[in-house]
Amino acid sequence: MTFLLVCLCGGLGAVARFVLNTSIQRWWNRLFPLSTFVINVIATFCAGVAAAAFAHQVVAESTYLLFVTGFLGGFSTFSTAINEMVSLGRNRHFVTFAVYLLLTIVVPVLCVAAGWMVGSLGD
């Protein structure tokens, strides 16, 4: 049953990613891949909140598993970010490549930390 619920939550995460990605791309027509970046920032912040909630026993392990492995696993898209970086490099957009690489590594780490702090506020 857990397997099916993780699959369902992953599907919901993928649909949410598709909707948000499409919405951002409708008005953002610049070189920087903003939609993937925003999606991964949201996902890492939520993962931090979820990790803190689980660590402080606010949510059950099954809820954590469904949300993080299922929903956020389907929502976040690190592989797309890497593919976009490679594409930027191949097309010789080296400054955008470097900025995107740096932001894609640093900002999500900060988001997880911020999410953890928010998720720990009740303690």
Rank of each mutant, 00 (worst) to 15 (best):
Y64A: 00
A16S: 10
L88G: 04
V58P: 02
G73M: 06
F75Y: 15
M85G: 02
N21C: 07
V68N: 13
T44P: 01
Y64G: 00
V59C: 04
V68D: 10
A47E: 04
V86S: 01
P33N: 04
Q57I: 01
R26P: 02
G13T: 02
L102I: 01
I42Q: 00
L34R: 05
V59M: 12
L34M: 13
H93G: 08
V38A: 09
F67N: 03
F54K: 11
R17V: 06
T22C: 00
F75Q: 02
P33Q: 06
S23E: 14
V68P: 06
Y100D: 05
I42Y: 01
T36D: 12
F45W: 11
A52Q: 05
W28E: 04
I39G: 04
H93Q: 15
F45T: 02
L34C: 04
Y100H: 08
L72Q: 02
V49G: 12
G74A: 03
L20W: 10
A55T: 08
T44Q: 00
A98Y: 04
T80M: 07
A14D: 05
G13L: 02
F67T: 02
F78L: 14
T36P: 08
L31T: 15
S79F: 13
A14C: 10
P33L: 01
F18D: 08
I39S: 04
V68H: 11
A52K: 00
A51S: 14
T22F: 10
H93E: 15
C46D: 01
T63Q: 05
A81T: 12
F94C: 08
L72N: 03
V38L: 13
Q25F: 07
A50N: 09
Q25C: 09
S76E: 05
S87G: 02
L20E: 01
V99W: 15
T77A: 10
S23I: 10
F54S: 06
N83A: 15
H93T: 10
E84D: 12
S35M: 07
G89H: 11
T63E: 07
L65K: 06
I39D: 03
A55Y: 10
Y64Q: 01
P33S: 05
V49H: 14
H93N: 15
G48F: 13
F37D: 03
A43W: 01
N40R: 05
A43H: 03
V38S: 08
S23M: 14
N91I: 07
H56L: 14
S35W: 13
F37L: 02
N29W: 13
T96V: 15
Y100Q: 06
N91D: 14
T69C: 06
A43V: 01
P33T: 07
A14E: 08
L101P: 09
G48Q: 10
A16Y: 03
G89R: 11
S35V: 11
A55Q: 10
L72R: 02
H56R: 13
